[in-house]
Design a protein around this nucleic acid. Structure first.
Lengths: 91, 91
DNA sequence: AACTATACCGGTATTAGTATCACGGATATG
DNA sequence: CATATCCGTGATACTAATACCGGTATAGTT
């Protein structure tokens, strides 16, 4: 087994990431956001729905830039399953 | 052509990313950093040498956390080819 | 010299990311 | 009803990411 399949936790994490990105998109259409980020609409949809649990780094960078998100804040939010993060610790 | 190959710019960007990560590793061994980040030594080596130009998002997140790097700062440094970034702008 | 540790490289194998196409459902608007 | 737009899903195709293996080189230690 040279490349282990993704675990459930990793897929859950991908779903949380997608949910946050979808929230950040707000009223904007998928087409405009995808075009501005330089990805296809289908890819954006799969990321938002969690069907791409571990997207490429620069894909999330482009999406974060398009949506005005801080990467560090995004990661903190993903690492916090509860919708009410009290104090995101980096360590 | 359903999945276009990576461009030269993307590979250059991957090399810059790897160079920054290697600098941040400093004196630490690849084995310890890879173990702490939860990736294999070969993967870390390929990322540092730029042979994995577009790593997974959470792979870079884990490496940044291990090396104490800010993701936003890392992206700014990658986007700045010059080795002397004056003022990293988020926008 | 032999051993150990670290790093680099090539090959191999398997899963995953990305894009295109085709279809369906929901919603709004004529 | 017809049309358009947006979102969603499934299939298909192809490249890339990741991991394991073996080999090589260099330096440090005994």
């Amino acid at each position: 087994m040279v490349r282990v399949p993704l675990t459930e936790d990793e897929r859950d994490r991908g779903e949380r990431l997608g949910r946050l990105l979808r929230e950040a998109r707000g009223e904007r259409s998928m087409a405009s956001v995808a075009a501005q980020a330089g990805i296809s609409v289908e890819t954006l949809r799969k990321i938002e729905t969690g069907r791409i649990p571990t997207p490429a780094f620069f894909t999330i960078v482009a999406l974060g830039s398009t949506l005005g998100l801080s990467l560090d804040g995004l990661v903190s939010a993903v690492d916090t399953p509860a919708p009410r993060p009290p104090a995101p610790r980096v360590a």
